[in-house]
Amino acid sequence: MNNKNRSWDRLVAWARRAPAEPDAEPPFGFAARVVAMAFEREKSEPLWETFSLRALGLASLVVIATMAIHLSSPQVSAYDDIDVVDQAAADLFLP
């Protein structure tokens, strides 16, 4: 390696000589605040999940009810439309 390629190695070697920072102490009240926030979040998540499950259940009921109404209603066959068209064509073109 030439000098330029070693520049980074030399720079970090010097940088490592910089005095290490003393171990940081958490700011006053930091742990209490973090723990309170974590517990608050934990409490709110099951609530959110409960609402999600309820919404899912409600949506499923709506789908089932819609299907039931659809299936119980009188069926209109596509062939009915064809019959009408056939009849109209016959009236127009057949003697």
Binding site: N3, S7, W8, L11, W14, A15, R16, R17, A18, P19
Partner: peptide, 28 residues
């Protein structure tokens, strides 16, 4: 100056320069 030193080895650096080196490392 630190950049000059690492590019042209052989020049002495004093311990104070370690902090400059650390700052330069962060920038790089």
């Amino acid at each position: 100056q630190m950049l000059e030193n690492v590019s042209h080895p052989g020049e002495d650096t004093d311990p104070v320069d370690a902090l400059s080196a650390r700052e330069l490392v962060d920038k790089m």
